[in-house]
Nucleic acid binder design. Structure first.
Lengths: 146, 146
DNA sequence: ATGGACCTTCCAATGATGGGAGGGTCAAGC
DNA sequence: GCTTGACCCTCCCATCATTGGAAGGTCCAT
């Protein structure tokens, strides 16, 4: 099975499969005589695992941890649960931060008549300071959200 | 006023001030005889504008648009309002996507006894497929959320 | 004059992903 | 056998906003 078929079956692009190999998330597969990567069912299984974890918002590093736990039959479910719940917390922190931004903007927009006149509280707030909303300063972790 | 003081006053790091200049978000300021960038109050004002827009999650490109509108005294408030509301929508789409991930994970974790035993529905879901949750496929724009 | 706190430019890295160039390989159809 | 198109390979580059550092120049106080 060449990389293109593996990509189709797993839903992970060929580019990303090579990338995951490069960064050590998956082991380098066997090669055919022509140098093509050869994948089997267990590789596809692994790639699907990765794909689903990506869809849940895990980073490559976190997926690496999950895959070790997956392969380790003696691991405690508590370990997995802890990682999952930590991730839930991180995701919810992100939603709170983004929602805070959205709310501030919504308040500003609600006070903007939105017609042809130039005066606009949104621009004024950006220019002059935060009179309308955004009472607290945004915290760390915020930078990667844009 | 040197770049360090401008950074302190505006809350934008010296590194980022130079970057914003490089990408054309701000115009190159005057230079002293020694080659140091010289900032005045209007520059600080502009940097604070940028800082606040960043805190609201606008990208550099969007801020560029907002600054043009800011400088343009004849602009209609409707233009600003449209940009703001589009951004609110984008932010809320992001929160929905992240919340969907968090909910899926929460459901999985709720079914995981989380003790020393190895069987764990979270890992099983990742390995075998999406039996528990995540009924819909995640949409576009999702990739940048991690 | 020496040190420390500035400033300058240039280069690199982050994380996950896409795009493309330049070149090799394979299988089907002629 | 040759051509063609669809693969595959390895590199390199770009994204976006931000940080870090190196190498070197400047300013000011001691």
């Amino acid at each position: 099975m060449n990389i293109g078929d593996a990509a189709k079956e797993s839903g992970v692009s060929a580019k990303m499969i090579r990338y995951y190999e490069e960064v050590g998330l998956i082991r380098a597969p066997a090669r055919n005589q022509n140098g093509y990567r050869a994948y089997d069912k267990s590789n596809i299984h692994e790639l699907k695992f990765i794909r689903r974890a990506r869809d849940l918002g895990f980073t490559v590093e976190q997926i690496s941890g999950l895959m070790h736990l997956w392969r380790d039959r003696s691991r405690a479910s508590a370990d997995v649960k802890r990682i999952a719940l930590e991730h839930v917390e991180a995701l919810e922190a992100k939603t709170r931060e983004i929602e805070e931004m959205a709310n501030t903007l919504k308040h500003l927009a609600a006070n903007c008549h939105g017609d042809g006149r130039p005066d606009c509280p949104i621009i004024e707030n950006l220019a002059e300071g935060c009179h309308h909303a955004s009472p607290t300063h945004l915290g760390k972790g915020f930078e990667k959200l844009r």
